[in-house]
Design a protein around this nucleic acid. Structure first.
Length: 475
RNA sequence: GGUGGGGUGGCGGAGCGGUUACGCGUGCGCCUGCAGAGCGCAUUAACGUGGGUUCAAAUCCCACCCCCACCUCCA
């Protein structure tokens, strides 16, 4: 049984979808006006873990992540760079997809773009106007009337009456009737340049919140099982999404709201506006393996802050290396016989893993049970108690766990026969004390990226890691 | 002012009423042609401060201190 912390109600609740084995999930995606930073990516990797674990549990997941490709900051970027809207947004969208790919994030089912759903957005706004929840201001913009939606504040606990009309609010130059109201449709302004759509609502563009309501409804229907996003979106974005959606459909919008904590750098939250952000490409340039970054990003619970430091990345790298060494060690085993009790260890591992993940996706705890297992199995290998059959069983379980965590990534269980021949040749040479020959063969294989390590129970082969390759090249 | 999240050993990070989390690092040992990995032991008066409840508190209650945020740009 999976338990998740639901921001709506602020407690851990047993998760089950509306439909038997199908999960409808919507997650807030990026605004593509710049490179995604590691903080954004932390959240996206969390989506991936959630999605992968739901699949592990046997659910079919329909996962939608929006791409916001029209918005204030984008318009500003268009104005300052002189680029076309599409040119700018598709560039950053591609970069994001490449980042997600290198972080081993699976492809989601849909990545709808706001600009490709203007028709759906217009329809939804019309519906809200018809029902009396929205009004057109003198400047032509359309606003949602928060006072009409009685449940406003149910998610964030923000009481409309208590909203402070502080400095930030007064900055808003739109002509809405009440500071709490938010824009559904923003009327064209000459600063917007060529960025507008001529619709029944007039010339303009969608507000920031409406695309999520329109697109989630289109792909998933009126009620979502899960909606996730960064904790900063809880208010106002998600609160507004609830208002718009429920006002339009009259149905519950989201059953489970999940919010991720922030990535910190130097003790502060990472924000583009603070200028303290780091991108994945920055870290890759420094020589980090993307899966080390992934390991780091999932190494603390998603609802706890995580601090980015050089030392934390080093620790992640070493920890992950231990897992890689483990799978290579197992892949190198050739002995026939082993200890049949390994069955019990393996089923205990999977049970512990699931227990940890069932508890609101406790990845650190899941990793802990994996490492305990690694130590126990290593001891058994030392004792010669693991044969081919057992190692296959263990590798199967490790692969199963990594189908969720995705930090080990793919590795070959076998090497080409031509290389295996060399390895056996070297082992013979070692046995006969011909160390010069043995070392020469080892060097030769190292050139091909194969590292050989001798143990009591045989020679282990592994593939040289990316970082080792880089440092080897720079030497 | 309102709301939320934190403060755990050298570091990262679980636990949230009663046994060693786990990982990284460091030291010593075993193993070892070299290299590397693995295993063992140690690093353990670890739980922000002060009270309280309890046979028992890192975990519950009260007060306080500090940190990071949100309150209409933000994952």
């Amino acid at each position: 049984m999976l338990f998740l912390y639901n921001s709506l109600g602020r407690r851990i609740m047993r998760f089950y979808p509306q439909e038997n084995k199908k999960v409808k999930m919507y997650t807030c995606g990026p605004t593509v006006w710049n490179y995604a930073h590691l903080g954004n990516l932390r959240t996206f990797v969390f989506y991936d873990i959630l999605r992968r674990y739901l699949k592990y549990k046997g659910y079919t997941v329909i996962h939608v992540m929006n791409i916001t490709d029209v918005e204030d900051r984008i318009i500003e970027a268009v104005r300052s760079t002189g680029k076309k809207l599409k040119e700018l947004t598709s560039f950053y969208e591609k970069e994001l997809m490449a980042d997600l790919d290198s972080l081993n994030v699976e492809k989601f089912e849909y990545y709808p773009r706001a600009t490709e759903h203007i028709g759906d957005i217009v329809e939804l706004i019309k519906k809200l106007m018809k029902k009396g929840y929205a009004y057109k201001a003198p400047d032509g913009s359309i606003y949602f009337n928060v006072s009409k939606f009685k449940r406003y504040g149910m998610l964030s606990g923000v009481r409309p009456a208590e909203l402070k009309t502080g400095a930030r609010v007064s900055l808003d130059h739109y002509e809405k009737e009440d500071v709490k109201d938010f824009a559904l449709w923003k009327a064209w302004d000459e600063k917007d340049g060529e960025i507008y759509w001529d619709t029944e609502l007039g010339r303009g563009r969608p507000g920031w919140h409406i695309e999520c309501s329109a697109m989630s409804m289109k792909y998933l229907g009126p009620t979502l099982d899960i909606h996730a996003g960064g904790k900063d979106l809880r208010f106002p974005h998600h609160e507004n999404e609830i208002a718009q959606s429920e006002a339009a459909t009259g149905k519950k919008f989201v059953r489970f709201w999940l919010h991720t904590e922030f990535l910190h750098i130097a003790g502060e939250e990472m924000h583009k506006s603070k200028g303290n952000y780091v991108t994945l490409r920055d870290k890759l340039k420094e020589g980090w393996d993307p899966l080390t970054i992934r390991y780091f990003l999932i190494s603390s619970h998603y609802r706890d802050p995580l601090n980015l430091t050089e030392n934390a990345l080093k620790q992640a790298e070493s920890s992950r290396k231990r897992l890689l060494d483990f799978v290579f060690r197992l892949s190198s085993i050739s002995a026939e016989k082993g200890n049949p009790n390994i069955n019990k260890l393996v089923s205990r591992l999977l049970k512990e893993f699931e227990k940890a993940m069932d508890s609101d996706l406790n990845v650190p705890k899941a990793l802990s049970s994996l490492f305990s297992f690694v130590r126990e199995v290593n001891t058994m290998i030392d004792r010669g108690e693991v044969g081919r059959e057992e190692s296959d069983l263990i590798l199967g379980a490790v692969r199963k766990i990594d189908s969720v965590l995705g930090v080990i990534g793919s590795w070959p269980e076998k090497l080409p026969e031509s290389i295996m021949v060399k390895i056996r040749e070297r082992e013979r040479a070692r046995r006969e004390g011909k160390y010069d020959l043995a070392d020469r063969i080892r060097e030769e294989l190292l050139e091909l990226g194969v590292v050989l390590e001798d143990t009591q129970t045989g020679t282990v082969w592994k593939l040289r890691s990316k970082k080792e390759n880089i440092s080897a090249q720079t030497k």
